[in-house]
Structures are given as structure tokens and as C-alpha cells.
Amino acid sequence: MSDYNFAYLDEQTKRMIRRAILKGLAIPGYQVPFASREMPMPYGWGTGGVQVSAAILTPDDTFKVIDQGADDTTNAVSIRRFFQKTAGVAVTEATTEASVIQTRHRIPEQDLRDDQILVYQVPIPEPLRFLEPSEVETRKMHSLEEYGLMHVKLYEDISQHGDIATAYAYPVKVEGRYVMDPSPIPKFDNPKLEMAGIQLFGAGREQRIYAIPPYTQVVSLDFDDYPFQPTKADHACDLCGAEDSYLDELIVDDAGGRMFMCSDTDYCTSRRKNGHVGAQGVPFKEDAA
């Protein structure tokens, strides 16, 4: 396999991370401090998610990595190869075949099963950080369940823009207690945070791990007269025609030409394989990619 210990990290580090994961699952939405290690990749490239994955992977796992929904970007490819090399795990791009999925900023369109685990890469785990820079203060606010400031922020959105303009990293309240940053997923994904699989969040630079067990109540913050609304581009995917998936907008020429396509590449490809064709798409051919 390689000269590394299984899954790169030493055993004592894994035990420390594993204990943090268990406390995270026992206190859903609470950020457990952990002694984040330096990883062979820069902060901001998913060092938190990688450490969580290293602590939970077994040799029997099938591992998938997505970056904004895509399996084939640099970040996703390098992390997938990292664990292929250091843990010897099988890898896949198909959501349904994976047992552990590490993600940067998306939840797969396909609903996860109860035998699947989703690991999020988190840049800023503290939802109150941009409102209150002091860790001492935000920790006190969480302990007192003092989340008024977050509602003021959402209210200011409404007073400035006429609507809650927060489109990603939309704050949620977990099991009626902790306000949590779901990582910068689009708010379109927020309803999927209540799922059958285990969700683990790792922030390497900020040294925090948190978790959402399966079937846990996750409520996006809102107001009675301005209810939470998951939004997406008002369009269908130009490649596969899907109307229910989150879309990326691509500029395709210098004349303002653009197209919308699914951000979840596996979802889009599976649909095209099944014969769905969008407005600018062509029928799927195996060697076309």
C-alpha cells in the first residue's frame, strides 16, 4: 500500500479525533475543539474534512469526494487520491456506491442512505464569527443560547434587500438548541440536512469538529412573515434537463452566452446516461467525457 500508517494519521491523533466525533454526535451542532494537525495540503483545502475522514475510514470503505458537487476538480481529485494511496480504500464517483463522501460546499442531489456518511469541509465553523469576532464572547453566547444577533443580521438583510439575501452558509438551529453553520452549502441544500446518514463537519484551521446524527431536527432560521426559502437558478439544467437540481451558471463565450448545468456532476451524468437531454445537451456517449 504505502509507507504511511493506515489513513495517514498516527493512531493517537486518530483516537483524539474519534473522541471529538463521539462528543459531537452526543451534542448535535456543538463545536467540539480538537487538536488539528498539519496535513500535507494547505489550510482551506479541506484539512478538517481530511482529518475526520482519516479517523473514520476503514479499509472496506468506498470513498467519494466532491468539490461544489463535482468529482473532477483539483481539490476533489487530490483528496480522493490521497486516501486511495494512504488508506487503500476503493474510490468512486457514483453517490449510490460510496460509503463515505467527503464534500466541499454541497450535499449530493441523490438522498443518502442510512449506511452512508457525509464529511463536510468547513472554513469558518462559528456562525456568529462575522457578527462577534471574540471566541470568548461567541462561546458565552452559545452557552446562554443568546442568538438574537443572528436574527438581527437576517432582519437587516430584509430591511436592505427586501428579502433574506443570505444564499449560502445559511444558519440553522439543531435539535432546538445550537445555532450551527452548515458550511457554505447553498441554502437550496439546507432541507437535506435532515437525512438518514451521519453528517460530520471538520474545520482544520479553526480546530473544530461537529456533527448531526441521522433524523435530527435541523431548522433554518427565519421569521413568521419571511419564511425560509431554498432557492436555485430559475432554469432547467442545459445538459440533462433536470428541474430539481442545484445549478451552476457558466459563461460560454464573449457575447454574453451562458448555460446552466447541474453542480452535482454524478447526478447530471446519471441522468444523461438514462437518456435525459437538456436544451443545449447532446445524447450521452460513453467516451464523450
Binding site: 493506515f6 486518530k14 476503514t58 479499509p59 441521522p214
Partner: peptide, 19 residues
């Protein structure tokens, strides 16, 4: 085999704590 055996064991403990 500590690394491999503990990875399987932790998965079982984590699943138990999550469910």
C-alpha cells in the same frame, strides 16, 4: 493490527452513538 482493527471498531462505536 491496531490501525485496521481500531478503524472497524470505531466505526461500530460511532454508528452506535449516532443511532
Amino acid at each position: 493490527n491496531h490501525a485496521v482493527d481500531s478503524s472497524h471498531a470505531f466505526r461500530a462505536v460511532m454508528t452506535a452513538m449516532a443511532r
